[in-house]
Design a protein around this nucleic acid. Sequence first.
DNA 1: CTCGAAAGTTGTCGTTGTCAACATGAGGAG
DNA 2: CTCCTCATGTTGACAACGACAACTTTCGAG
Lengths: 218, 218
Amino acid sequence: MPSDSYHHGNLRTSLLDAAVATVTEHGPQALVLRDLARQVGVSHNAAYRHFADREELVTEVAAIAMERLVATLQQRLEQVATNDPVLRARRRLAEIGRGYVDFAVSETGLFRLAFSSTATVATAASSPAHDPLGLLTTCLDDLVGVGFLSPEARVDAEATCWSAVHGFSALHIDGALNGDDAERDAALDRLLVAIDRSYGASTGTPTDPRDIVATTDE
Amino acid sequence: MPSDSYHHGNLRTSLLDAAVATVTEHGPQALVLRDLARQVGVSHNAAYRHFADREELVTEVAAIAMERLVATLQQRLEQVATNDPVLRARRRLAEIGRGYVDFAVSETGLFRLAFSSTATVATAASSPAHDPLGLLTTCLDDLVGVGFLSPEARVDAEATCWSAVHGFSALHIDGALNGDDAERDAALDRLLVAIDRSYGASTGTPTDPRDIVATTDE
DNA sequence: CTCGAAAGTTGTCGTTGTCAACATGAGGAG
DNA sequence: CTCCTCATGTTGACAACGACAACTTTCGAG
């Protein structure tokens, strides 16, 4: 791998790395082709040997951002260690929601880019499991499997759950819902409890909020 | 009001009108200062007599977009004609959600702009009732008043409801949740039913989905 | 009637995305 | 080992944009 010869060697990867870093720090609108070239130490237009235009690069970075989101959610899901199957399924659903919001808040730039309209369609079309839908589907299937969620209420539950946490994330990072970190976490807990209560009610299963939220004083 | 003399007369308003039209048709990223000037028949830089920079104009258009959203929701709210107070309160909450999504789908450009991060903060700071929060608050208070929603579950209910419909809207207009209009409406109905069921469960009130969704075959 | 300031114009600069033409050198064919 | 090819990177240019400065026109207060 030549360091500073005429040919860069792996310019494509370097550009994507720089792009990810830029988006992470300064948001999607800071994604400037000539700037990336400068960061990588290459001339403007070099990127055009690897990407048709700006949008193609942006789309690819968006795909990377989506992958990171899904990977983060998967990690969070694996951290749920509960033996009781019903409790476990309920907590996994809540945990996916918390992971989603945490990613949006801590990786705001990547989150925004992952759902920037232009990039989303191309991403969704390319790879089937490159959005959080897959993880959500298995979680909800589990919830039905353990008898907590009724089959009728199961219909379109992906859309409902995803909408709730996505909207919560979007409104918070856009400043429409304000509040510090503690207030945000409390509001998210209550959102998750509302979903849990609704799904429990679909089978007449009584629910206690403390099954889902970690109470600090005990 | 001089038509085509040296002084335009009401350039500021004309620019905002043109901006609203542009955003409606082609989205927020099509908001180009020089383009607006051309549309209005004025030279570039004329806008700088009325707006400090591009962002200031964008922010103002975003405020207009938000006003239209709120006005639309208010209209929808007034269309709910039900005598039974409990049913009425539940239907009003559902109707606000439908109005929200309808606006996002039919006025995608304005909706996107209204919640574009840069503009949101300035808007929220300026006017207290210039987001849907106010309407939502009264709806939810009503729900508590008629005994359908428990005071404990009332906490942060604005955030939960707003998040759900906002996320639903965002995911749909970004193409993350696909489906035709009928599928979207059905999914939204189920989302609204889930919220209704959750809030009913908070007071042990049994709920029937048909209280909230209009069934076609009856 | 005067004249100052508000409102609009012309010209320019730096930056960006993109195209076209050119330069380089890595690697396979002989 | 040599040569040629073509992928990869460079230089130069162009149009469009946002923004600034300097100039011009017109309204309206006194």
